[in-house]
Write a protein that binds this DNA or RNA. Structure first.
Length: 418
DNA sequence: TCTGGGGTCCTAGGACCC
DNA sequence: TCTGGGGTCCTAGGACCC
């Protein structure tokens, strides 16, 4: 049942990383800048509006961004600051209502239906949020307000940069009809092109298309979402907590023929990262998935669901290695450019810590229980890292040392629990 | 001189069970 | 004479989001 009034807000910081850099260094203000990447490699993580004008976008290879905008300034990024300032903005939002759903470092939904008696209309609340974020944190933020989350998110996109858009109840159709379908959450480049092939470019054109045709193109789920939105029946509520469904890590590698020692070293490193995070949260997972990217960007995944959840570094490494070779051998001869490990089917694992014994027991210690031994090793490593920091033990595989395009601080930011 | 790293959700086919 | 229909789980691939 939709709330009365445009009481769902979507607040979204503008070009977040780039805006923080311009806040920290006044010399960068008004200039086209890119965070991450460089003219010779890596990818752009974020671009300032001055750079976006030239077509520079997040996710774009640095060399291409440099070609689009020769005066582009590349900055390395202050990832710790992003976390700190993102948190500060969320604190401002929490002053308005406890019903805040943070969906990434820099954006959140709010349900302000219980806050209007204190702060006034959704429009007044949106204005207040924008003023306070600007005054207290120093960053531009856009806000959309509407009757549903979906619509509020579209409204904030329309409001950018540094604006506020309220979709008053009853005006939804008039608001949506002229907008491009790409603004719909879940319609990316592929679906946008598929729709364009049918002559459908605006949301209005889409809603006039028979739903059976839409579902044929976009699939049943997206089709249903669209028709729900078209009829203003978006049931999603603002939820303040969400549980992680998977934990993973990946690393791009310079193009190479897969060598057993390399593959093992990289997978051990990734498995170590993943399993440490699982253990830190008291989680374990039954399904292990390995992703391999080959030269030419083709990808393959292999997964295995185990009878019991795993969280031990060594166990995860062994499973990952089998899965990786299954994918590599199916593609041979090949060159690989990325390896990834992820664990899903998560279960809370604080009480029991069963570990699958994939290997025969240690021949040097007859009667030993490999699972228990592995847990003991992991516990010691975790304790040392907690005390002395993540670099105290463990190692970075030689094959990764040269390829570390993305700073570790960025990984930490991306993996941070929101 | 080819593209990061963290995720979510959906789809389709097959195995398996009752 | 080979054979229903529904449900669940697993696997692989893919689109999408920040």
């Amino acid at each position: 049942m939709p709330a009365h009034g445009a009481t769902i807000l979507h607040a979204d910081l503008d070009a977040f990383y780039a805006s923080v850099e311009q806040l920290l260094d006044p010399a960068l203000r008004g200039r086209p800048i890119a965070v991450g990447g460089g003219p010779r490699g890596g990818v752009v993580l974020a671009a300032s509006y001055e750079a976006k004008v030239h077509g520079v976008q997040g996710g774009m290879p640095g060399w291409r961004a440099a070609r689009l905008c020769p005066e582009l300034v590349f900055v390395r990024g202050h990832f710790g600051e992003y976390q700190r300032l993102g948190d500060a903005v969320m604190a401002v939002l929490a002053d308005v209502t406890p019903t805040v759903e943070r969906i990434s470092i820099d954006e959140a939904f709010l349900d302000v239906s219980g806050a209007t008696h204190l702060f006034g209309s959704p429009e007044a609340i949106g204005t207040r949020i924008r003023e306070r974020v600007r005054a207290d944190v120093g960053l531009p933020i856009s806000v959309g307000a509407a009757r549903t989350k979906h619509l509020a998110k579209i409204a904030s996109q329309v409001a950018k940069p540094d604006g506020l858009v309220v979709v008053a109840p009853g005006t939804e159709r008039a608001f949506l009809d002229p907008l491009p379908v790409g603004l719909i959450w879940g319609v990316g480049p592929v679906n946008e092109q598929r729709l364009a092939d049918l002559g459908i470019r605006t949301i209005g054109e889409l809603t006039r298309t028979p739903s059976s045709a839409v579902e044929r193109i976009l699939g049943q789920a997206v089709g249903h979402k669209l028709s729900a939105m078209a009829h203003d029946e978006d049931p999603r509520r603002v939820v303040t907590t969400r549980r992680a469904r998977s934990v993973g890590a990946q690393s791009a590698l310079s193009r190479r023929h897969p060598e057993a020692a390399d593959v093992r070293a990289v997978l051990a490193h990734l498995s170590d990262r993943v399993s440490r995070r699982l253990r830190a949260k008291g989680h374990a997972g039954r399904t292990v998935t390995v992703a391999v990217r080959f030269a030419g960007m083709r990808r393959a995944t292999r997964s295995l669901t185990l009878p019991v959840p795993v969280a031990a570094t060594l166990t995860l490494t062994e499973v990952a290695e089998r899965l990786a070779w299954s994918a590599i051998e199916d593609a041979a001869p090949c060159e690989i450019t990325l390896l990834g490990v992820s664990v899903s089917n998560l279960a809370d694992q604080r009480a029991i810590q069963l570990e699958l014994d994939l290997d025969p027991p240690d021949p040097w210690r007859p009667g030993s229980a490999p699972g228990a031994a592995r847990r003991a090793v992991d516990a010691s490593m975790d304790a040392i890292r907690t005390r002395f920091g993540g670099d105290a033990v463990g190692y970075l595989p030689v094959v990764l040392r040269r390829d570390g395009v993305v700073p570790d601080e960025f990984r930490e930011l991306a993996e941070h629990d929101l």
